[in-house]
């Protein structure tokens, strides 16, 4: 298995781990009562912003640790650049990821149209962001293994 394939797998599992850990950390802080109170909205706003920041930082840290471990265990050179295949796979995976997120976004807006409340809209939005990240990583792994 090459560096890129291993990196896609690490990225996939780290995305799942970060999301689940963050949800477990944030869930007890969910305000009780009505879902449309300013406090609940503040909670979801904070959830989205902090999940984004935590994800970025965690991905960077995991990527650095992975590179160090890869170097030690395989003695293989870690690629320092992206070549044409990497860029092509990135584009294809990002396109799939984007489509998934947009579908989630449309469904989230649909809940507002159907008066389902802001809480459900935020939950769908967050889940679609997570799903798009996971599907993006799976797509990368698929393209690296099966070709483009």
């Amino acid at each position: 298995m090459t560096y890129q394939e291993k990196k896609s797998i690490v990225s996939l599992f780290s995305a799942i781990f970060i999301f689940i850990s963050f949800c477990l950390y944030m869930y007890p802080q969910l305000p009780e009562g009505a879902s449309n109170t300013p406090e609940t909205l503040r909670y979801w706003g904070f959830f989205v912003i902090s999940l984004t920041v935590v994800s970025i930082i965690a991905h960077i840290v995991i990527s650095i640790v992975f590179n160090i471990l890869f170097n030690i265990t395989t003695k293989e050179k870690v690629p320092t650049f992206e070549d044409e295949l990497d860029k092509l796979i990135d584009l294809k995976a990002n396109r799939i990821s984007f489509i998934v997120f947009i579908l989630g976004f449309i469904i989230a807006m649909g809940t507002l149209v159907l008066n389902q409340g802001l809480q459900l809209m935020f939950i769908i939005l967050i889940i679609s962001g997570f799903t798009s990240d996971v599907i993006g990583s799976i797509s990368k792994l698929y393209y690296y293994r099966r070709g483009v």
């Binding site: 090459t2 560096y3 293989e76 070549d83």
Partner: peptide, 8 residues
């Protein structure tokens, strides 16, 4: 290029 590309 990267080794991945040669493999592919």
């Amino acid at each position: 290029v990267t080794r991945q590309t040669i493999v592919a």
